[in-house]
Design a protein around this nucleic acid. Structure first.
Lengths: 222, 222
DNA sequence: TCCTGACTTACGGATATCCGTAAGTAAGCC
DNA sequence: GGCTTACTTACGGATATCCGTAAGTCAGGA
């Protein structure tokens, strides 16, 4: 079983119950291993390496309230940053997000080891996940929801999120190329933007940009 | 301090930490007082009355996953139902929702006694809330977020909400007149729709429909 | 009845989006 | 180099939206 575990979770109540779960697994309790901000988590990881006592497991949320400015903006960014300094650190994502497609995307893109959604039996789920990855296996919670409708399980790329966000902020489509060029985002052609939007709308069976914005807002995609 | 408290919370991890908080306040621990479904909560309340040992406090979430059919669909409905059988039961809402306006609306409409959002220091916040209402005061968490800008407080008319919803559902502007006519909503002319949308966007200083949709979705106006 | 004012609708040109097609660009392979 | 393949960009006509102006509708009052 793990000996050194770092928990990044901004909800005190959740952090407390994770702590209890770790206690039940006889993982050493230490207040400094429970952080409420991504930057703090990253610093703890670096400190662990520096002092020759690296963490073995990171348990992190995905979404954090931004009530104070942070270098690292959320769970995904944290995982990316951590992977660069300590690739062998195991990562367990514990979050309110409960879509299978999102979990699989994280497994594939960021190489996370386990994904547990906050839900009815999340404490038991979490415990099992930790035990599983301690045995060098990956864990995908059985409580994840499959997109019943295929059209709703579509995972947006960063590029798509960018242009959809720009639209949602009032930028007309025709002005987006200038913005993308200025920020060195490729592709930046108006045609490419039209094509991406059209492709996404076709996949989701939508007809207008308004509908797409509404969909993304409902699912907190942007 | 309270002796008999009921906790309705569908996330096991949160329930565990509420339980810990209650322990710290020396409130008697009993597994039957932690329920995961609204219907169960309502039944427990009725049972308490029937047996002459009514609950003194209900701590409830607002949103529950609907993974099994329920008579009572969520926290608000639960509070309403409970109020009818036991008006003197104190109610504390503990939820991810963190807007002041929503909390105040619950105080006013359902007469809840305390509102605590799940956030950074929610465990301490919860403890303080319980202590406060035990002294027969109400508690509004200081962590609630106020709606900041006046220009964003525009109150939409039903007509405006209707056409914005239609847009958000993918109906092109030009088709809206037919829909309105069919449902005997006046005005129904395309010009009128254009004018209203334009007026609203001018007031809110928006330039596109996409921006308007995003705004309404963010504020749960539609 | 006629007038007035508020509201609704029609119209039309400028602009933007939609969407299919074609041309340009770059990386990999023979 | 020549070729393929995948991706990006340019172009242009059809359609929709934007927006200002004018015309139509209707209720209330003299």
């Amino acid at each position: 079983m793990f000996k050194k575990v770092l928990v990044a979770e901004d909800h005190e109540s959740v952090s407390i119950s994770v702590q209890k779960t770790l206690s039940e697994l006889e993982i050493v309790h230490d207040n400094s291993n429970y952080v409420f901000y991504c930057d703090d988590a990253f610093n703890r990881v670096k400190k662990g390496i520096r002092e020759g006592q690296p963490y073995e497991l990171l348990i992190t949320d995905l979404s954090f309230e931004d009530d104070r400015p942070q270098q690292i903006s959320g769970g995904s960014a944290l995982i990316k940053a951590v992977r660069e300094v300590q690739p062998n650190l195991k990562v367990l994502v514990f979050t309110i997000e409960n879509r299978l497609a999102v979990a699989q995307a994280l497994m594939k893109d960021l190489g996370i080891d386990a994904f547990v959604p906050k839900a009815r039996h999340d404490a038991k789920d979490l415990k099992l996940a930790i035990q599983t990855i301690a045995n060098n296996k990956t864990y995908l919670s059985p409580n994840l929801k499959q997109g019943l409708k295929d059209e709703n399980s579509y995972v947006f790329t960063d590029f798509e999120k960018t242009i959809i966000s720009l639209l949602a902020n009032g930028m007309p489509q025709k002005d987006i190329p200038f913005y993308l060029e200025r920020n060195n985002i490729k592709p930046s052609g108006l045609s490419s933007i039209e094509k991406r939007l059209n492709a996404v709308k076709t996949i989701l069976n939508f007809s207008t940009n308004e509908q797409l914005i509404a969909h993304c807002k409902d699912r907190h995609i942007i």
